[in-house]
Design a protein around this nucleic acid. Structure first.
Lengths: 196, 196
DNA sequence: CGTTTGCTTGAAGGTCTTCAAATGTCGTGG
DNA sequence: CCACGACATTTGAAGACCTTCAAGCAAACG
């Protein structure tokens, strides 16, 4: 029974990573488990991000800080979401992002070094390297269309429908920032909607 | 002299494509020149985009049309810009984008078929396949940050400074749409700024 | 030379912002 | 266990900027 569950679990993660079952173990063994406490940082701006991360269980916030010290949530990640700064990793340059735990969180870290070595090793992994790049692009494009076409209110409704789990875990002020509006505006949108 | 100019030209394009000089010719020979007249479409929504495009000379507009028939410019491309729908090409699914010429334009078309065959042929090209995916991602991320952090007015000023060439060629109503605002608002922003 | 197309401007209305204050919620030390 | 302080959310008020609809003007094109 325990083994059965473990199997299912592995299949689930293989699928999330976009890797077939035969190849999953190779990656699984490279992943380093890291447990971080609420408020701790996984990445601070100015440092390089030399890994791809995955949230096993918990909640993270990826944010920028502007000149005036105000921060804006760029992404919110909870269970089964990927995180990191792909640009920093690929171009080997310092990141402008900060990544912080919103609660005690367990993550998997896949270092660039191990990843790159693997991607050179054979044809399957070479193809997988492109798949990762494509996946990262598609995420960015989806977020882009989201900001370009939807009003803040539409974005809120959309998030509510597609990621209700986020509201269970992440404080409203970070969600407002993710939606691109002030905390007060989100409060008013909620009021507006609850009335109708 | 003519040969000299041709050489410089090739180096320029190799650099724009991110290909080294030895490998450039291979790609150059795959590129199909296509001349399209003002108002003609290079892509219509619902069809698949099975190529990566490059604007040799001219101006294009990449846009969505919403349910109400209103269109929003997603991207504007002039000389030396890439175009196409990378998502449609990679996932082999119909595009939701339209691409139209804003003036008589000459483009290079690199079909997916030839590209993929090349990317499988040897290790250099395999690596280049990832570079293309990375480049496409970085463009999307830049646009994303642009929309997320800047106000419409800041976006206008930024575009004015970084791509003044676009204003020479592309009508204001399309630029406003690219900035994510109405044509009237752009007109007012221009007025506001010219006063100060 | 008239018609279309693009740009500007006005008016009215909506949603956002910021600053400020009131209320709610949570965690910790007494 | 409660009270306090810290932090989060809500609400108010004023102002900025955006939107749409509409009208007027200018430039481009057949």
């Amino acid at each position: 029974m325990g083994e059965m569950m473990e199997m299912e679990s592995d299949e689930k993660y293989a699928r999330l990573f976009g890797i077939d079952d035969q190849h999953w173990n190779t990656v699984r063994e490279m992943l380093v488990v890291k447990k971080i406490k609420k408020h701790e940082f996984l990445l601070k701006e100015g440092t390089g991000c030399n890994y791809l991360g995955f949230v096993k269980q918990g909640a993270l916030r990826t944010f920028y800080v502007d000149e005036k010290g105000k921060d804006a949530s760029f992404l919110l990640q909870i269970d089964n979401d990927f995180f990191g700064d792909y640009e920093s990793m690929m171009l080997e340059k310092p990141s402008r992002l900060n990544i912080q735990a919103l609660e005690d969180t367990e993550v998997w870290i896949w270092t660039k070094e191990e990843m790159e070595a693997l991607f050179k090793s054979d044809i399957y992994w070479m193809g997988y390297g492109r798949t990762v790049a494509l996946k990262v692009f598609l995420d960015a494009k989806r977020r882009l269309e989201y900001l370009f076409y939807f009003t803040p209110e539409q974005r809120y409704i959309d998030l509510l429908q597609n990621r209700p789990d986020i509201f269970q875990v992440i404080p409203q002020k970070y969600i407002s920032s993710y939606l691109g509006i002030s905390a007060q505006s989100l409060s008013r949108i909620r009021k507006r909607i609850s009335v109708n």
